[in-house]
Computed example of a mutant assay.
Amino acid sequence: MSTLMTRSRGAVRVAAREPAQPVNTMLLMMLMLTGIGLVMMTSASMEIGNSQMGDPLYFFKRQVFFIIVGLCLVAVALKIPMRLWYQASAPLLAVAILLLILVLIPGVGTVVNGSARWLDLGFYRLQPSEMTKVFMVFFMAAFLSRRREEVQLSWSGFLKPMVIMGGAVVLLHFEPDHGAMVILMATTFTLLFLAGAKLHRFMFLVMLCFAAFAWLAISKPYVINRLTSFLNPWAAEYVYGEGYQLTQALIAFGRGEWFGVGLGSSIQKLYFLPEAHTDFVLSILAEELGLAGVLVVLSLFCILILTAFRVGRAAEAQQNYFNAYVAYGLAMIFATQVFINFGVNTGLLPTKGLTLPFLSYGGNSLLISFFMIGVLMRIDYELTNGSSAMEQEDAA
């Protein structure tokens, strides 16, 4: 700490000058990704906003509103001690499971494009699967912090969280929301592995997952169509059907080349690429900003995810296992969602509707992403300031 010396009528006064606080890396990455996303989402949605809503800035205005609400969520999450999330983890997951059940009730859940994923609240469409992913992380982190030895040493400790996750996965299957299913399973498996579960137990579950996937592919013809169209989207029978979105996304990437055709100059967003401002905003970014723009966005996500894992590792080093597993779990949600969205847009994975955090249009995904950043920043704050600081804050 540096000092500042001043003289007042012969007396020397020493004033302390506080060092400048470093900018939180996760906050910086969040703001940069949100800024890029707002620009690209607006560029991708102006034509559809003008034709459908009579206002080219319709989606821009709504996204700005969600960003403002999301920033408020970050501020709220920063004020809530992690021990409160620990205490409320089971009730929160129970509420999320109840909401997943409600969306399946005819007349209660809202069906869009054949999927019942939303609850229409009048002013807002709530998507329970988004909050389920986060509340499942809270529950698993609380369970693993209490039962680490049981998870490491016995099958019962390993299978108990699997049963809870399995119930949520079944409900997500009936919506259907297979993207959320994959994220939920990948996050839970990762947390169990980091908690010290034996590797051979995962092999049993992997075989079950493959069997379930085979059954799903057989029982749902559209799954087979998506897989076969993904392998050869340019085939005559798929290029205007199941493979249409992928081929249009690949055309966008091809047109963008290294540095893009210029901001606002995309052709694919002019009704060629469906969902250009939501699930496929990355393709429009690639067309307008080129491979360079895609690599910048990917780098920002990598920094964000690695920083979240670093926070989790620091919490684990202090034996604060709940905070550590929450940080690991939220990092995995970001990592899995980014991986799937990038894979779908580039043709590395079968086409699946899944938003890109901070970039795609949509209130549910954006608000949950902001909330997760707020929780991660709270964990980082508690690491830096210690439990005594938290107790003083709670007493105040």
Rank of each mutant, 00 (worst) to 15 (best):
P128F: 00
M165N: 05
M207L: 15
I164A: 10
V170C: 06
K160F: 09
F158P: 06
Q127T: 10
I218L: 09
C209I: 12
L172P: 03
L172H: 04
V182Q: 07
F139E: 05
V206I: 14
V170Q: 06
M181Y: 01
P176F: 00
M136C: 06
L192N: 05
P221E: 06
F202N: 14
V151H: 00
I164F: 02
D177M: 03
E130R: 07
T188A: 15
S145I: 07
Y124A: 13
P221A: 05
A180P: 01
L172R: 00
M181K: 04
F138L: 09
A195G: 10
A195V: 03
V163W: 03
S145E: 06
V170W: 03
L205M: 10
C209R: 00
G122R: 04
L216M: 13
G166M: 07
S219V: 13
L205V: 14
K133M: 08
R148M: 09
F123L: 12
A180N: 05
G166C: 08
T188D: 14
R201G: 15
V170P: 02
T132F: 02
H178I: 13
R147K: 08
I183P: 05
K198L: 08
T188H: 02
A195Y: 00
A180S: 15
W118F: 09
I183V: 14
A142C: 09
H178K: 04
R125S: 12
I164P: 07
H173W: 02
F138W: 00
M185T: 11
M162Q: 13
S154C: 04
F143N: 03
K198W: 03
M207W: 11
H200L: 15
F189V: 14
L159A: 08
L191Q: 02
V137D: 01
R146D: 12
H200C: 14
A142T: 08
M165P: 00
A186Y: 05
L184H: 11
L171V: 11
E130P: 12
